[in-house]
């Protein structure tokens, strides 16, 4: 049944979206996990909902509203916590809620029912149009290029921010740039798993990869592979059992995550005996 399902056009797009988004997800997810900024990423993702509302209200492609909105969220949360003497979790919580609120207000202002907004919240990989695929390709290229150019700075920033600063690196600027890359990744992942669940796919593959990696680039490659595997198997299972695709992808990832940790725990207790 595997090949038959993928013969459809929408299925081909879904497959490509899963694979292409895994590239950004694995690379940026690696930084999110090692730098422990999962909650900032969640904050950026939820704030981006305001952008969806704005795009919907203006009658343009919601993704066009989301890109500036999520970038502003990234810069806002980053600057407020780094420079504004505001606790980081307070900054995150404030943006998180305001973004959602703005989105709800915009949607309410536009008369009529908004049928596909649900797919931005919870993802619907089966409805990705070809134009969005090109956007994902473009964002992937931007992310890969920036990470490649700044790999040594990002490594120092993630491992030892103070040392990077002492070495003459503009750490605040670089941190804001990293948050912007997270924002772009959120935009990409929105189609696949939706705003609410982005944080899971940003962290789970990288967290598993971390257990088996000796270097950061190695961890990135493994995260990309895991992310692709989870997306594809989730997609396949969702078709097989007629389930929501985004949610199935997350559940598959989560199950593997727990399984890996269970196996490690059992192994560790066996060797301890």
């Amino acid at each position: 049944m595997f090949p038959e399902i993928f013969a459809f056009d929408f299925m081909r797009n879904a497959l490509l979206a899963a694979l292409l988004s895994s590239v950004a997800c694995g690379i940026i997810g690696t930084y999110v996990v090692v730098k422990r900024i999962g909650f900032i990423s969640g904050g950026i993702a939820h704030t981006a909902f305001g952008g969806i509302g704005l795009g919907y209200y203006l009658g343009i492609n919601p993704l066009l509203g989301v890109i500036p909105f999520s970038l502003l969220a990234a810069l806002g949360i980053g600057l407020l916590s780094k420079k504004g003497n505001v606790a980081e979790d307070t900054a995150i919580g404030t943006f998180w809620a305001i973004g959602m609120a703005v989105g709800v207000i915009f949607i309410g202002l536009k008369p009529g029912y908004a049928p596909d907004l649900f797919s931005y919240l919870f993802g619907n990989i089966l409805t990705v149009p070809t134009s969005d695929l090109w956007m994902i390709v473009l964002l992937d290229l931007v992310i890969v290029l920036v990470v490649w150019l700044l790999s040594k700075e990002f490594l120092a920033l993630s491992f030892d921010e103070e040392y990077a600063l002492v070495s003459g690196v503009k750490t605040t600027l670089l941190y804001l740039l990293l948050l912007c890359l997270i924002a772009l990744t959120v935009v990409i992942m929105m189609r696949v798993v939706g705003i609410v669940m982005v944080i899971a796919l940003l962290t789970i593959p990288a967290a598993i990869a971390r257990l088996f990696s000796r270097t950061l680039p190695g961890m990135m490659v493994l995260s990309v592979v895991l992310s692709a595997l989870f997306s594809l198997s989730g997609l396949w299972l969702s078709c097989l059992f007629d389930l929501a695709s985004g949610a199935t992808i997350i559940v598959v990832s989560g199950l593997v995550f727990f399984l890996v940790h269970l196996v490690r725990f059992v192994k560790a207790s066996l060797t301890a005996q």
Partner: peptide, 26 residues
Amino acid sequence: FDREFPISVRDLVMMGRLSKKKLFQH
């Protein structure tokens, strides 16, 4: 430090060269 950070001794030591390099230089 985070002792569990996936970084080899070589990459850690190489970080010492950071102050000698420009942005974007590998």
